[in-house]
Write a protein that binds this DNA or RNA. Structure first.
Lengths: 343, 343
DNA sequence: TTCTCTACTGTGAACGCTCACAGAAGCACT
DNA sequence: AGTGCTTCTGTGAGCGTTCACAGTAGAGAA
């Protein structure tokens, strides 16, 4: 490193400089760089030391111009912006995806499509080929942006099961139904029989599946399904409060409640405390996600862990595979019951 | 739009196609695109309709190759990853910066430099010129990565006042000292005299300034500074709990506490509740940040609002100016006292 | 008319890289 | 010695854009 830094940025070395330094041609350097075969060990050695000596880093723009790939991918959030604030899950997902991509030396472009304007601009940007693929996060899983991108042939993978029946779109999701089953079984094992549920949005497969798991286990156990014990929310804290209030009004004898997200469960806890119920003595509360909200609430939430780290790495894996020409794939990952103080 | 989408991606139109369609030359199209002068109204008109007709979007790689700019900027987080989780402020900052940049049609690359390895890779990436500038977020404000980038001549702007004395680095920060003064004045106005403080890290200007504001107002008011009422934390919830415990041990007669972050204040609230103090009757609690933590805690926190939206837009503005050749600049933004239930 | 100036337009070169192809060198087998 | 194969290397072309420069047309002044 003999670069005299005068404050301004110097012109970085090119593949030409490396070639000259190593006493080979551009072609050979390029082959070494791209892991191509047909390079003699001595040449490779010379090139590598030349790279180290010159501090060469490939100019991605020049490469992209010819390959047509951008070697970057987008992380697209199609929610209105507040989601990013409130939902701790997005953070984890974003972090894990960034890291998973970093391992492939691929930068992540953050794209927020809250307004209609932003949606248009981003769609344009993506379909122009400025990213090779897109990781899509949205809870209304019949997302119009995602659908448009898919039709334009942009490789993408969704987080969570999408709505469409047979549409060939990749996704990675936790096993919602099985997670719900585990939780309700757990509540039953504590001797609870009047088990309420605050579902997620029922226009999304996640919400539907968690409710299905709930009903399934109760039916198996011979406990009658009581519609007064079922209300639905939208995963937000506020809707958790509202849900709990409705449940208590409709079924004051409720002795447990399965809340389909930790955030909603937090809201429910607030309401239960306010109305004088002790948790877990009077009412057991089970959440879903195992987000930071679960450990921060008092009492700490028993919940179903969604493996966001694995979800992220799988999303990245599936996306890269699809960019590489493979077919769309669906991945369902197992969940885990985490016992804490609220049950 | 007469593109027949067969699922695969078609070759996008180039500037050439637009030129042909409009009956002009590449040069003219380029001039229209880049807002250059010396274009006749009729030509500009023809080019614009041709762009609309062909659905042309500029190929940023080709442009970057020749201009040397990448027209993208990095958002660099030099904290270990957990920060991203816990601190609600990062979310707001990230969101606002993304949007501020989107307004300039500049994509944001998210860069997490938690480990030494990541740090090296990212430094390499940035100094290679793959981004035009960097928005840096870190609370240990004598950041080695930022310093290295600065020396390499990479335009960057830090969030928060940096440590170094006279180093010419851009930054945008809230007026920490003034915010602290407002809060302590507020506590005094409530009749409190035994006012404790849980500071931020004292190796960062933010932490130092907030403590300075605290001392200043007390001295002005003729209240003696009692070292037993001063403990320091690191902005995390856990350190807020620890801090509150130490304060109560050292000064059981404390009747108010200024906690230098909302997250720490949340921790402090937990401890106060546990030890039987009523908030705000027995002890008034003031936070700092006005993050989501402030409204979520019970009771809701009186706090000092940091204008993160303005901080973000200013960071972007200063960075773009610097990329445009202007000198580094420092911006200090005013804070605001937000009264809630905890005082 | 001729000259100059302004307003505009077209063209070749270049940015740094990869890709396809051609060629060289070494080896084995006729 | 010739042929064919494998392994390796160098070279020209071209990706889509911008930039500098040259050139044209028209208006106004001499």
């Amino acid at each position: 490193m003999t670069m005299s830094n005068t404050g301004g940025r110097r012109k970085p070395p090119t593949i030409h400089d490396v070639a000259r330094e190593a006493g080979v041609s551009r072609g050979t350097v390029s082959r070494v760089l791209n892991g191509g075969h047909y390079v003699s060990p001595t040449a490779a050695e010379a090139v590598n030391t030349a790279i180290r000596k010159t501090g060469y880093v490939v100019n991605r723009h020049a490469r992209s111009l010819i390959t047509g790939r951008s070697d970057s991918i987008g992380f697209l959030l199609t929610e209105p912006q507040e989601k990013l604030f409130e939902d701790p899950n997005f953070n984890v997902l974003l972090r894990c995806c960034t890291q998973a991509l970093a391992a492939h030396d691929i930068p992540l472009l953050l794209m927020l499509a809250g307004t209609e304007d932003e949606r248009r601009r981003i769609t344009r940007y993506i379909t122009a080929g400025h990213v090779d693929g897109v990781l899509v996060v949205s809870s209304h899983s019949a997302d119009p942006v995602a659908e448009e991108l898919r039709q334009a042939g942009v490789p993408l993978v969704q987080c969570g099961k999408p709505m469409g029946r047979g549409s060939k779109v990749s996704y990675v999701a936790a096993d919602d139904r099985d997670g719900a089953r585990d939780m309700v079984r757990h509540l039953l094992s504590l001797g609870r029989r009047r088990i309420g549920v605050v579902t997620g949005p029922l226009d999304s497969p996640g919400g539907v599946d968690r409710l299905a798991g709930y009903k399934e286990v109760l039916t198996e156990a011979g406990v009658e399904i009581d519609e007064r014990l079922i209300v639905s929310g939208d995963y937000s804290r506020a809707s958790g409060e509202a849900g709990a209030e409705r449940l208590l009004a409709q079924a004051p004898d409720m002795d447990a409640v399965f809340v389909a997200s930790d955030l909603m469960a937090q809201g429910a806890l607030t309401v239960l405390r306010r109305t004088g119920r002790r948790v877990p003595e009077d009412v057991s509360v089970g959440g879903f996600d195992d987000s930071t909200a679960a450990t921060e609430s008092t009492p700490a939430l028993t919940t179903i862990r969604q493996p966001y780290d694995r979800i992220s790495t799988e999303m990245v894996r599936v996306l890269l595979a699809q960019i590489g020409g493979e077919d769309p794939a669906a991945v369902i990952l197992p969940t885990e019951l985490i016992r804490r103080e609220s049950t």
